[in-house]
Design a protein around this nucleic acid. Structure first.
Length: 555
RNA sequence: GUCCCCGUAGCUCAGUGGACAGAGCAGCGGUUUUCUAAACCGCGGGUCGCAGGUUCGAAUCCUGCCGGGGACGCCA
């Protein structure tokens, strides 16, 4: 549509109706097309004429008329035969909107296409597909995932799904720390429980520590006893055990990772050292006070950042820059980090380092998700792995269910802080809008089953068969799906998808009220309505699938 | 003190330059001999935190202020 408008504009210019854009002439604003909320305004609307009014110094209505005429001509001219008949009407409305209405024929072709290729309906191919790395969760394996990790898990997963649907190549990655003091503290805590001693300071207190203590295999204990770092040895075993548990929890959420990357491997494989050398070669590294620094201020940061401490130990930042080079070495065009908002302070230094190493800074993106404040009966639940006071992700799923939890996080922007009242969530899980959408799907599935029982089948083609008002309304709603996916991928947000799924369900429920599908006495009407609701079912199922939510056949 | 995010209906949140600001839940009233009532229909509900500014047009962009959260480490 955007393309058609742009062409129409160009034709007006070519025919001398308007001056050419560019140097000496008017600047060209981006051609924007939107979906009007009011059906009276057609299927597409553009404010192009109003944008052009100022540079052209002409009334927007006159410009709109000229473009609208070309648009209508173009859609019926032999040259545009491939798209002919898709546009029903083009209207101009004050103060200068151009409103375009799709023809029945366009809607009929869409329904046929959905039924012909259901699996790909809603996937699109963006013109500039990229290799995208999405790193998320990345919680250290010192305890089970808790509900504080839930939002990151869902946001990252949904983002990866949406980008994939838009045609990008996506790798999902989990990064964790396997060799620092935290892991040693975990090991020391396990040993303390075994010895019946109090948990050391900075140790871990959760029930799972006791479980780990009971499960340590004898050979690991023997190795630890013989080692000069028993806590470290036990910690290594414990963290691997915990990590496997995390993977199980995530699989239960429907969240799958392509790669689990350890901080230790970045050092062992030399990525960190090479990255530092690269920075040094560019003159961005210096030594001071026995420590090695990155000149982050050269890129606008408010202070320089330590890479190696004065005791020679690398900082977390050192691993970060090593990881950037490691990721780019795998051919990614775009790195996305899904981080908690508390990591805000580290964003600038990592992006600056990427720039210093010669990468495109814009290709390194951090998505900061706001905290979820967990509340039970009005009191905030403090969450700390060390204290052992937390609600695990598994507990949350037991209480509210995967589909409801996915919908909850998928329908909210990630920059907004959320209050999550556990009791309220449990109560509301029964009336979560997700069931409204799933119900629409189950209702259609039921109709399709009954139709088969009664020997009714859907029409092989909708061509010329769309029929009246209720059909066209539903078909319009179905046809919008690919744009929703495209918008979601571009915005890196999924609220549009949940909103769309709700709207489509509402539209279907209205159709169900007004239009009876199974009418054995009127096989033709039944056939075209069956085709239409079958396409609707596919669309709902694909929208839910995009969110990782199930589409039940019955409820 | 500096920086980032947020402030929209009673509640939880959408809407980030367009046409009368929306949804779900909560509240009130109605609908079933029919393909699933987890549905449908109707009603009430708003100084879009406040004040300026830019624009043909602002919840949306800019400035200031108020309120809430977060970050400012040779922690991770």
């Amino acid at each position: 549509m955007t393309l058609a408008l742009t062409e129409a504009w160009r034709r007006v210019v070519a025919s001398g109706g308007l001056p050419a854009p560019g140097p000496g002439g008017a600047e060209s604003p981006p051609v924007q097309v939107e979906r009007p909320a009011n059906p009276e305004h057609g299927d597409f609307a553009s404010s192009l004429a109003m944008k052009l009014a100022r540079p052209y110094r002409r009334p927007p209505l006159a410009i709109a008329e000229a473009i609208a005429n070309e648009l209508l001509k173009g859609s019926t001219s032999p040259a545009a035969a491939g798209r002919s008949g898709l546009i029903e009407s083009v209207e101009v409305a004050p103060p200068g909107f151009i409103n375009v209405r799709l023809s029945d024929s366009a809607l009929e072709q869409t329904i046929d296409r959905v039924l012909a290729e259901p699996a790909t309906w809603g996937t699109v191919q963006v013109p500039n597909p990229q290799h995208v790395n999405v790193e998320f969760v990345s919680a250290n394996p010192t305890g089970p995932l808790h509900i504080g990790n839930a939002r990151g898990a869902f946001v990252g997963d949904l983002l990866a799904r949406v980008l994939t649907a838009a045609g990008h190549q996506v790798t999902r990655e989990y990064y964790f720390n396997d060799f620092n003091a935290q892991v040693r503290n975990l090991g020391a805590s396990v040993l303390a429980v075994r010895a019946g001693e109090p948990i050391p300071q900075d140790g871990y207190h959760g029930d799972y520590v006791g479980d780990l203590a009971r499960e340590v295999p004898p050979e690991v204990l023997a190795e630890a006893a013989a080692s000069d770092d028993p806590g470290g040895r036990i910690g290594l075993w414990a963290s691997e055990r915990v990590r496997a548990g995390i993977e199980d929890s995530l699989e239960r959420l429907g969240v799958h990772f392509d790669l689990w990357k350890t901080e230790g491997s970045l050092h062992r494989e030399g990525w960190v050292a090479r990255a530092v050398e690269r920075l040094r070669a560019g003159g961005y590294v210096y030594e001071q006070g026995g420590a090695t620094w990155f000149r982050s201020t050269a890129f606008g940061d408010d202070k320089d950042r330590v890479i190696y401490r004065s005791n020679g130990e690398p900082t977390y930042f050192a691993s970060d820059i090593g990881y950037v080079t490691e990721k780019f070495s795998r051919g990614f065009d775009h790195l996305i980090y899904v981080w908690g908002a508390d990591h805000h302070g580290t964003v600038a230094r990592v992006r600056n380092a990427a720039e210093a190493m010669g990468y495109d800074k814009a290709a390194v993106e951090m998505i900061l998700i706001a905290w979820v404040r967990f509340v039970r009966e009005g009191r905030e639940i403090s969450m700390s792995k060390r204290s052992g006071e937390f609600i695990t992700l598994d507990d949350l799923l037991d209480e509210v269910g995967v589909d409801a939890a996915r919908w909850f996080f998928g329908s909210r922007g990630h920059t907004t802080g959320i209050d999550f009242d556990i009791e309220l969530a449990k109560k509301q899980s029964a009336e979560n809008p997700v069931y409204y959408v799933q119900y629409a799907h189950a209702r259609i599935a039921s109709i399709l089953r009954k139709g088969t029982e009664r020997g009714l089948t859907h029409a092989p083609s909708m061509a010329g068969a769309l029929g009246g008002e209720p059909e066209a309304v539903l078909a319009r709603a179905v046809a919008r799906f690919p744009e929703v996916v495209e918008d979601a991928a571009a915005a890196e947000e999924t609220q549009g998808v949940t909103a769309y799924a709700t709207e489509l369900a509402t539209t279907f429920h209205g159709f169900y009220r007004d239009a009876r599908v199974l009418e054995p006495d009127e096989p033709e009407r039944s056939a075209r309505r069956l085709a239409l609701v079958a396409a609707t079912r596919i669309t709902i199922a694909n929208a839910l699938g995009l969110l990782g939510i199930s589409a039940p056949e019955s409820m």
